[in-house]
Design a protein around this nucleic acid. Structure first.
Lengths: 207, 207
DNA sequence: TCACACAATGAATCTTCATTCACATTATAC
DNA sequence: GTATAATGTGAATGAAGATTCATTGTGTGA
């Protein structure tokens, strides 16, 4: 019986932790790291400030935890997407689709995400290296796929690293511009455009 | 715009202002807006804190001034680059070249720049709209060039807005990835790759 | 029912700066 | 040379907000 009681407690605790993370996501995505106060987050979570410190050692730690949780989820989605195809071109198409779909799903979080992976000044020193490591796995995978595509003769002969850089840059950049705003474009249209441009380029046929 | 002739005092003052801006650039690019203190900047500039306030109304104002100065310079370069060509494809090529060259020249500043134009949470509320306005001019110009290219039949028939988005995204994103890091690629190689990819795509000939 | 472990609370504390301002220094005018 | 104006100074101020901790509340097992 003692064990069951403990379980209950533990589950409760876990739920509270998750609630705090949800609140933190809300507030951080709304106001950014520096604009968000622990007060804000506590209120959003309907806990007292002190309580947050029972779960996380501080503001940075909370941010860090939120970040890892999200990035893991995103990377898993992207990875699974690529797994679902066998041929290089198919894999790359899925990469583009999933990437942009994720952007939509995590639209609010995306602003934070990009600032963190892109800039220096990581909010928490521990966050960036971990995220980088996760990201590097994706980069390597994409480069590998492109290399295979070249070997098979379906992709143009060029430095795979550079192609990877351009492709990922294209995804990141256009997603950003899309999130930014005033677009009448649907995400679907953007996805199609990115695919077309990446594979076939901007020049008219035969030019 | 006859620049008013400045007497000794006024010139001195102008020089001091510029020195403070230089120091601010140093410190902000090093530590980011929130990581930089007025103390830091003052020390770097070899002035007392109080002095900074004789030139700028506050930290935000200083940041804002620095930003505008830089962005104006960058945009002028890009604009001039495009002016130097007459044909759409030539203009776009110049756009790519100049853009990436600027990235190299302003490498340190670039991190700040992107965070500011990209994210919400602008550091100073006044900065973002102004920068956006400047940026929009470039976007419009590029879209116009692309539209002309399509009309002339040298670019594929597609939504010019979307193409613009992808092209600018590609530039921004790949520049970022380049700045980020561990690249063996020279900027020249990256530039070539972006051009090739944008115009011709990734697929092998005849595929 | 009681006692006890654990969870939650939030006012009080501690830190970190941005900003100010009374004063000192220097340059210019007369 | 003295008066006046402009510049520069940096210790003192105040505000914001992260963190702590003494206290209060609650569910659990006897």
């Amino acid at each position: 019986m003692a064990k069951k009681v403990l379980n209950r407690r533990e589950r409760e605790r876990e739920r509270h932790r998750a609630e705090i993370l949800r609140a933190a996501e809300e507030v951080f995505t709304e106001k950014g790291f520096h604009g968000a106060s622990m007060q804000d987050i506590a209120e959003q979570a309907e806990f007292a400030v002190g309580t947050l410190y029972k779960f996380f050692t501080g503001k940075e730690d909370l941010y860090h935890a939120l970040f890892l949780e999200k990035v893991r989820k995103i990377d898993a989605l992207v990875g699974k997407g690529m797994d679902s195809e066998t041929e290089p071109v198919g894999k790359l198409k899925r990469l583009i689709e999933v990437n942009l779909r994720v952007v939509e799903e995590y639209k609010k979080f995306f602003g934070l995400y990009l600032r963190e992976i892109m800039g220096k000044f990581p909010v928490s020193p521990a966050t960036q290296p971990q995220i980088r490591r996760l990201r590097n796995q994706i980069v390597k995978r994409v480069a590998e796929v492109i290399k295979t595509g070249i070997k098979k003769g379906v992709l143009r002969k060029a430095d795979p690293r550079a192609m990877t850089m351009v492709l990922l840059g294209m995804l990141r950049g256009s997603a950003f511009i899309w999130v930014e705003g005033r677009h009448k474009l649907t995400l679907k249209e953007l996805t199609e455009m990115v695919k077309k441009m990446f594979f076939e380029g901007a020049l008219a046929e035969g030019k």
